[in-house]
Write a protein that binds this DNA or RNA. Structure first.
Lengths: 232, 232
DNA sequence: GTCTGAAATTTGGTATACCAAAACAGGTTG
DNA sequence: CAACCTGTTTTGGTATACCAAATTTCAGAC
């Protein structure tokens, strides 16, 4: 038996697959064969099946009846739907964080903004992006609402690749840091209205970036037929 | 192999357990022994394990390391957290439904309100409650945002028992129908502001009812020690 | 070259066995 | 009486086998 804190084999596999998907090593549309992948990793079908289930719940893998599951190909509507919900969750996070965040929480969030400013030019884009994510996650945690933090995390994860692609393309880090600073200031000032407005502004830009990148990918997919190849 | 539309054995088991939990047949704190329950139902551990996983994800069952899972005992904070998120999701639902609902959608929602009015006194409380739930679900569906509808459904499910208990105790059906009608009128008028206000009002009452019932259950649990008995 | 039917392959789901770790219970000792 | 130790029981996780259904492939006929 394994302790709760120690991840199971299935969780390990899920993490590895998730990383491959989010980094693009496993492309949208690519099939994930339960038996083949299990053999490749030297594990049995049971944890592999469990891992695939975990990622299917997260929206990263799409189960198909009687066919191998495939890496989900986020369409525009799907991404937009998730972005809309994420914005509502982030607003609620900010609102509750204004009320409930401790001074330590706010210091922690400020530390993330500082870190982003300081390492603006020297960091790998992926590292910077992870820090960006941690900013948003810290606010959700500071809301002191676990159900919200968990659901927020789920949506962040589902939108991870779209957001990552958007962040990679635009190189608008200064704007991101500026907008994060606005949010932080609203939290510090315990100003719910300002926090919501700053979140709205920040995520409106995000939605724009995501829309562009998804349109690009759709165009690329259409002109190339099926660049990732049909599954199977 | 089973078709997608046809539920698996695991899904059947999950549905049965869910029903037992939500109806109180399986009380909060009661343990669910994988092997025993599987034997009782004449199935193997695999679908039972899968079913427990499903319900754990829904928050109805609480997994414990090296111990039998137990029926989740919702504490006050937990329920309140979920209610807060649900309110945000419902507001977003109403807002998007105002924009995106088809006339058919609105007719469907109106039909539910009519049905509730007509069968106000003659229906079993549980039936009336299910119809109440379908009202909210129909709005989420009318938002045309699948991610929102799915997450909304998840939160509705997690709060089901608390809401059901609240609904059973208060017998405030007339008020519920009135508030539903306000929401429906706001949807019909395509008035997002009115819809949000009506949702706020409706769910504020809900939160009040839930708070009362959870407090009652907490008091009952404290005075009786562990009325449901320790698991194992 | 196309179509159809049969065979082969792939697949998800389930049953069962095994293992190691954690928890529990009972007895002994101080 | 409390603490500790040991043996037993319970438990979750994983490996493997099997089955039935769906899909794919191949061969033969037209």
């Amino acid at each position: 038996m394994i302790r709760m804190a120690e991840p199971t084999l299935a969780e390990h596999i899920a993490n590895e697959l998730r990383r491959d998907i989010l980094r693009g090593k496993l492309a949208p549309g690519e099939s994930i064969k339960e038996r083949d992948n299990a053999a490749e990793m030297g594990v049995s079908r049971t944890p592999m099946r469990e891992a695939i289930r975990i990622l299917a719940k997260e929206g990263l893998i799409q189960l198909r009846p009687s066919r191998s599951p495939i890496v989900a190909r986020p369409n525009f509507k799907n991404v937009e739907d998730h972005a809309q919900v994420l914005i509502a969750l982030e607003k609620l996070s900010a609102e509750l964080a204004v009320k409930n965040a401790s001074d330590e929480d706010i210091s922690h969030i400020a530390g993330i903004v500082d870190h982003m400013s300081e390492h603006f030019d020297t960091s790998d884009p992926l590292d910077m992006f992870e820090i960006d994510m941690s900013f948003h996650t810290a606010i959700a945690d500071a809301s002191k609402n676990k159900a919200l933090a968990e659901t927020h995390r789920t949506f962040l994860q589902r939108l991870w690749r779209a957001r990552y692609l958007a962040a990679s393309q635009r190189r608008n880090r200064q704007r991101v840091v500026n907008e994060h600073t606005l949010i932080l200031n609203a939290l510090r000032g315990r100003d719910a209205k300002a926090a919501r407005a700053a979140i709205d502004n920040h995520l409106w830009h995000l939605a724009e970036d995501i829309r562009e990148v998804i349109e690009k990918e759709s165009a690329a997919n259409n002109s190339a037929g099926t660049p990732t190849g049909d599954p199977q």
